[in-house]
Nucleic acid binder design. Structure first.
Lengths: 261, 261
DNA sequence: CGTTTGATTGACACGAGTCAACACCAGTGG
DNA sequence: CCACTGGTGTTGACTCGTGTCAATCAAACG
């Protein structure tokens, strides 16, 4: 598949830069510095641990290619996925300050992962205030996503849960240019969808069938097709506001103004 | 009730200081500055809005007395509570940087709320790096709590959900000295518990009855009694790690070392 | 007092979980 | 080359946890 080909070296950092820039305007100098910081990349196989609960890693990780997720394991063996990590996402920016990780991060497909030493991250934020602000903004969006997930799992019907989750992913993939005419390369199993929405695999399967028959989406063999994204979003009440896509100037902190899309 | 009496003026800021200090060691000077910043307090009735979705408030809010919550309203009228706010909690620290609120914050009981102008908050963090770090830490704990709630609502049984939620509250109330021999003043209705755990009110009621009969806890008339907190925590698999109570020195950022409890 | 809000309980319906069987595919090894 | 395997998707039958509806009760309140 064309989607799976490795990006040329000088394009490797492109997704990371594109994503960070979506959180705040950067100068060419900022972008170069960010790309440089993430130069150390490694390829990981599917279902490999990136950071484990209890770890206090010495470097941050960002996804360049492939899909990963955060998750917790419960005493009874259950798994709850807390977020999907798509290309461009910084996995563990907060671990820079917290003593130890309180959840796991693992790949869902083969991934290209950038390793950014905490030392580099710190000096970067000191020398590049715009990068610092973009990272700060990004961490706030992370928090906001987590809150929306609570509402998703807590109060939406099974159909809407799945639809909402996929709507969010579509939007986030759009941000980094990974959408092609309503088609998204989505290397996640139904079991992953189930663990992200708090449903069983069997019921997830049935819901997907129902959504397919309703013509809202089609997910098969790692390819998600959404004929009409607006219809899907209406169906599940998706409102992109929580992803804080358009940034307006703040009277005090002077965050840059810019509208995505 | 003795618990409901208004604190003397010079004690008003005590809870806020105590809470902030639980996130990082502060000097006497820091504490005085923080208390001063939160000097403007107002008393709000039950079920009053503090900040609404879509707002871009000019000041931050902190709870001094009483209970509040964050929540989202869904298109179908459902409400999902995203977090409870107890005395000492900063409600909307993140709003300092984000363009607008993506959820509501309202009181659950009569509350004493401190209003901290964003301008003050900004200058405070510039002049007092320890306060800045404590606030930063606090925002990370907020994020961590949100993630735990996803797992709670997504993968735990109804009994464990309620038990876990109440275990968390017990711990957080402990932090600010609001626990008295396994008894906690908890002015929240069963409907609030239901909206926080993704259950119906009726079923919440039944679960509470079951927990009461199992001798795990007793919640009636705003008073939560937990005979044996350890037993409750074991029942629901509560692990305080996600609240990041003990802070160890970080090799790079030099966060202070200190163990709560 | 009547009114309102919240707690409690029962009867019933339904969404979602569980168990089990089978299909399908890729990889692997005899 | 073809069985054999493990992982994943699909479907049916059945069970069970929760939701819904409705009635009653208790406490708070104007």
């Amino acid at each position: 598949l064309g989607l799976q080909r490795a990006a040329p070296p000088n394009l490797t950092a492109n997704v990371l830069v594109q994503k960070l820039a979506s959180f705040g305007e950067l100068t060419a100098d900022d972008e170069a510095a960010w790309a440089q910081a993430a130069a150390d990349t490694r390829r990981l196989g599917s279902k490999q641990m990136i950071v484990a609960e209890g770890d206090a890693p010495g470097c941050a990780h960002a996804i360049v290619e492939g899909f990963a997720c955060r998750y917790k394991l419960l005493p009874d063996g259950g798994r709850q996925i807390l977020d999907f990590l798509v290309p461009g996402d910084l996995c563990d920016g907060h671990a820079l300050f917290l003593a130890e990780m309180d959840h796991n991060i693992a790949t869902l497909s083969e991934c290209l992962v950038a390793f950014i030493p905490h030392k580099t991250l710190l000096s970067l934020t000191e020398a590049h205030p715009r990068i610092a602000r973009a990272l700060w903004w990004s961490s706030l969006v992370q928090e906001s996503i987590a809150r929306e997930w609570i509402a998703n799992v807590g109060r939406r019907s099974a159909d809407q849960r799945i639809a909402h989750l996929l709507s969010e992913l579509c939007f986030r993939l759009h941000l980094v240019g990974l959408a092609h005419h309503g088609q998204y390369h989505l290397p996640i199993r139904q079991m992953d969808l189930a663990d992200a929405t708090g449903l069983s695999v069997v019921h997830t399967n049935r819901v997907l069938k129902k959504l397919r028959q309703a013509g809202l989406l089609d997910l098969k063999q790692n390819l998600l097709t959404v004929p009409n994204i607006q219809r899907l979003e209406e169906f599940c009440g998706f409102d992109r506001a929580y992803l804080h896509p358009h940034r307006r100037a703040h009277p005090l902190t002077g965050m840059p103004t810019h509208v995505v899309q």
